[in-house]
Computed example of a mutant assay.
Amino acid sequence: MSLTPAFPVLSAAETAALLPFAALCDTLASAAGEYMAGAICSPERQVLPLPGDGVLLSMPATAQDIGIHKLVNVCPGNSRRGLPTIHGVVSVYDAASGAPRLILDGPTVTGRRTAAVSLLAIRALLGGVPRHVALIGCGKQASAHAEALAALYPGLRLDVHGQTLAGAQAFCLQHAALPLSLQPAVGRIDAAAEVVIMLTTSKQPVYDEPARSARLLIGVGAFRPDMAELGPLSIAGSQLFSDDPVGARHEAGDLIQAGIDWAAVASLADALAGRFDAARPRLFKSVGTAAWDLAAARCALANWQAGQ
């Protein structure tokens, strides 16, 4: 009996090639409306503990065309072992028959769809093409966001804030081939930055400046109630949006700790539809949902089939 699977198991590079950011953003924009309308079923993720503050995340989702199941292990202690923080896979199935179609690299799907969601937030909420963006964090999500920004906004100035200047400089050197003006930084955000994207797993706020209408805030890294990248000063003065307002009630530590009114949190679909006040400051909190993995799987599967 052959042990070779009847469906492709793709590497990180092969998965990335099937998820170009422009097409992925468009697929996610469509999925955002489907998700809010109930056409994509994406229950809250199941979180199981692993040793050393790690977690195993089980995230299924289904629609009329496909079903997916993402299994991802997040192990913060891996940095000390010289290993990636995230490992996992996304399995893709035909909805009608249940037959497997693809196995995608989980961290690549997560990184690219998360960055694409941030770019959708910029598209919807900034009110123009960004010229100056600041990233706080130098990890894998920061890499995915730098690649996404380079793909959609080449020539952009991108300030990269690390815990140390040496770490920020190393990140900029690693990504020097991207068509961006990369500037390593630590400390306070440049006043000219139109977008600030937080990409850390900090348990203390890394940004808490007064909210202002000329700067869009995007919080990505804090995904547990005990984490908080954004401080209460920034949150209190902002219109609040989340990619998944239901999941955010349990996972968005920044918002949970700030004691916000959850009835006031709008969705990504609301942002894309223009349902907000452009004269007031805006804050977008990304917590992730398997609906976005399903959208990424759609994009990957369509491109895979087109190449056959």
Score class of each variant (00 low, 15 high):
15 T>C: 01
235 I>W: 09
275 R>T: 02
89 V>K: 12
165 L>G: 09
118 S>C: 09
104 L>W: 09
49 P>Y: 12
293 D>C: 02
297 A>P: 02
295 A>N: 07
291 A>E: 09
294 L>H: 11
85 T>E: 13
69 H>E: 09
24 L>Y: 05
65 D>L: 02
183 Q>T: 14
129 V>Q: 14
55 V>I: 15
128 G>T: 08
141 Q>W: 02
98 G>F: 10
169 Q>K: 15
100 P>S: 10
175 H>Q: 12
127 G>W: 15
62 T>Q: 14
187 G>F: 08
143 S>F: 03
20 P>L: 00
276 F>K: 07
202 S>A: 15
125 L>K: 14
63 A>M: 05
11 S>L: 00
164 T>A: 07
7 F>T: 02
175 H>M: 04
9 V>H: 12
114 T>G: 06
118 S>M: 05
190 D>N: 14
54 G>W: 09
145 H>S: 00
230 L>V: 11
59 M>N: 00
83 L>R: 08
232 P>I: 06
223 F>Q: 13
261 D>V: 07
166 A>G: 13
35 Y>V: 06
189 I>C: 09
181 S>Q: 14
134 A>T: 13
251 E>N: 03
125 L>A: 11
251 E>R: 02
16 A>V: 06
255 L>S: 06
64 Q>S: 09
241 F>D: 10
16 A>Y: 06
252 A>W: 10
60 P>G: 02
135 L>Y: 06
103 I>M: 15
290 A>C: 02
142 A>M: 04
273 A>E: 07
107 P>S: 00
255 L>N: 03
210 P>Q: 15
122 I>K: 15
13 A>L: 00
283 L>G: 05
89 V>H: 14
195 V>R: 14
131 R>V: 04
189 I>P: 04
37 A>G: 02
195 V>L: 09
40 I>P: 04
158 L>C: 07
290 A>H: 03
83 L>I: 04
251 E>L: 01
178 L>K: 15
294 L>W: 11
21 F>R: 04
307 G>W: 01
238 S>N: 11
150 A>H: 11
124 A>N: 13
296 A>G: 04
125 L>F: 13
153 Y>M: 03
91 S>N: 14
259 G>A: 03
6 A>V: 05
124 A>R: 13
141 Q>D: 04
233 L>N: 08
239 Q>R: 12
101 R>I: 03
308 Q>T: 06
137 G>R: 01
8 P>R: 06
25 C>I: 00
278 A>Y: 11
64 Q>E: 13
251 E>W: 10
5 P>T: 08
26 D>A: 06
174 Q>I: 04
205 P>V: 15
91 S>M: 11
253 G>V: 00
271 A>D: 01
71 L>T: 08
215 R>T: 07
95 A>D: 09
60 P>D: 05
289 T>S: 11
302 A>Q: 08
277 D>F: 05
138 C>H: 03
177 A>W: 12
